[in-house]
Amino acid sequence: MTITLYDFELSGNCYKLRLLMSILNLPYDIVPVDFFPGREHKSDAFLRLNPFGQLPVLRDDDLVLSDSGAILAYLAIKYDASGLWFPDDPATTAEVLRWHAVADDITSTSSAARLALGYDYKFDIEKSQQGAHRIFRLMDEHLWFGEKAGRDWLCSPAHPTTADIACFPYVMLSEEGGISRQDYPALRRWTDRVRRIPGFVVMSGIFPAGPARAE
């Protein structure tokens, strides 16, 4: 197997895959795509890989995949022998996919605000920010009651899943879109927990957390 990631270093959606592959200890090659300012993801060559013209794209031998959530599921099902990252159970699968969808909503709000502020994109900044706040409020509430019930992650299992990986990057990068997380203390604590997952890696703008309690 040879995995190749078509990657842009500052993309949170590409980072999701780097993060899971690092946690799963999967070797892969990187092909850098000049998303900004080169707009290479709209080039003919790239559109042949992904007609939707979006990063990330992942190639595994001859198989070419796009959409970060779909690729997270693929990698976990295929390469995570523990079966923990994308659990094979109907109810849990539905739960994980539900949060993959939230992750896309976070991309279209928090990431859009960031692209508008830092990358010259013509998105409605205020609307994007408000949309992100609406999602973060719900996530904070979900995670706060989760903590009270002894649940540390977005889904019910007692361990993280691809749902946590999918939602993490653009929560963490929200300040770059002018979206403060001050009002979401439980969301902030969850980002500490994600950053303490063994194999965690950073990207620009995402700092490591301090060590967890030694058991």
Binding site: R181, Q182, P185, R188, R189, A209, A212, R213
Partner: peptide, 16 residues
């Protein structure tokens, strides 16, 4: 400005 539970092990809380 916070709940006691907002300050778990090795966390830094943001308040105002």
């Amino acid at each position: 400005i916070a709940s006691s539970d907002d300050l778990p092990f090795r966390h830094v809380y943001q308040g105002q």
